[in-house]
Design a protein around this nucleic acid. Structure first.
Lengths: 242, 242
DNA sequence: TGATGAACATGATACAGATCAATAAATATT
DNA sequence: AATATTTATTGATCTGTATCATGTTCATCA
């Protein structure tokens, strides 16, 4: 059948305009555009720090003196206020934290970051980062790319949030964790129910109820902290329903 | 009283981390960094188009061949899917549309844009825009700034959405329209109740009920399409409550 | 001018998800 | 190992907001 002439009843495959996945593009490429000289400058103005599980990498509202690169570990990026917090994204190794602090005259972290697992992080002096942006157009170009990606991801997730309800959001989140973060159908999730709640915009109780339902429906398996995606099709379906 | 030693009961004034305002920074500045020569290049590869009220400036999913600059008028940026849409922002003159389409290898509009009023728009060829990014580091720097601003704005609005409920969202939205879009306490709003609903993530019925309440409480005045902010304090309070 | 459809308004009802309360299980602390 | 504290779970209830139904006003157009 000629896909150019699909009837309205058989719509063309649509893109994922409504999932909340943390895009996980290879950031390494951004740095590949640096010359040896520039790379040296970077290395010389860089501190490697190990954060233990449970430690705070940066705190919303504080001055951002560094851009952070996650070498290893798993980090949550979240906004907080008395009353509640929202997890903006969960970032595995290979991602940058704090790009929005590049903003002139207001380089403050707009969110906090927390280590789910032990993390190795490179702290890049923000002045050096800015200098590199100014002297290497290719690098600047890559950073623009990253910022665009981030923007699209946030908007798409925001949209998904307003359109889906609890089961859809939970399914979406599980798909995302499996596909983009852990890249496995079975994974050990270092997030508490409370944190899953902050990630889905629900209460811990609701999260528990939904997970129980998924489990009894054999869509997922849960053994302690080990999650297993049993029925991807079904999960995708639930994620899309609304 | 020394504000450095506030007791927990008297917290320091916090920043607006929870309003959903469309930041309205002066985009014109971005172009000021262009040389005469570059400006000429821009002018020569630029089409000025007039859109009538109600027309679509760009459609989500279509190839973005241009970055758009709003010379005059009022535009809504929104994401849509069967089932519903979400207004991401309302942009007055002086703003750019389509920056996220700068993304390499995927320069597609991730949202649609619609003219609330007659608009004059400059369509800037995206290849020229990219070329200018590559040859003028100051310009690239300004664009990075814009992208950061956008990102922060979206995240903050997203956060506000998850934390506030109907009355707070409505109050927030009205404050924002008054302060950032129209810059007046009294303004003519070219949005229907349905569109206010898409802007606040509510149903039209809820919007109506809330507006009626605000009106009967003398927080705002409504005469046809003319809105008047009567009690800014109160509105701010409602916006912040949660 | 009256007719037709959209936007606005209001009331009644339904329901998803929050809140509250009360264990149970797991983890941390001594 | 014993105790304290956090996290997970389950059930009962409450509530904010959507949904549905119906009517009214307003704008558009034959």
């Amino acid at each position: 059948m000629n896909s150019f002439f699909n009837t309205p009843e058989e719509p063309m495959k649509t893109e994922h305009t409504m999932n909340s996945c943390t895009l996980n593009i290879a950031v390494e490429n951004s740095f590949q555009s640096l010359s040896d000289e520039e790379m040296l400058l970077l290395e010389n103005n860089l501190v490697v720090v190990n954060y233990k599980k449970g430690e705070i990498l940066c705190k919303q509202g504080t001055l951002a003196s560094h851009i952070m690169y996650i070498c290893s570990g798993l980090v949550k990026i979240y906004m907080e206020k008395e009353g509640g917090s929202l997890i903006l994204k969960v970032l595995p190794a290979g991602n940058l934290i704090g790009l929005t602090a590049l903003l002139d005259n207001n380089n403050v972290f707009r969110y906090s970051a927390y280590a789910y697992q032990d993390c190795k992080v490179r702290l890049i002096d923000i002045r050096i980062f800015k200098q590199l942006l100014r002297q290497n157009i290719e690098f600047a170009s890559q950073v623009i790319n990253l910022l665009c990606e981030n923007q699209i991801q946030t908007q798409t997730r925001f949209f998904a949030f307003t359109q889906k309800q609890s089961f859809g959001r939970m399914a979406d989140t599980l798909m995302c964790l499996s596909n983009n973060i852990f890249k496995m159908d079975e994974f050990e999730l270092p997030l508490s129910r409370k944190e899953l709640a902050e990630l889905t915009g629900l209460t811990p109780e609701s999260v528990i109820r939904i997970l129980s339902k998924f489990k009894s429906d054999k869509v997922i398996g849960i053994e302690g902290k080990i999650f297993t995606i049993l029925d991807k099709e079904k999960l995708q379906q639930i994620s899309e329903y609304g």
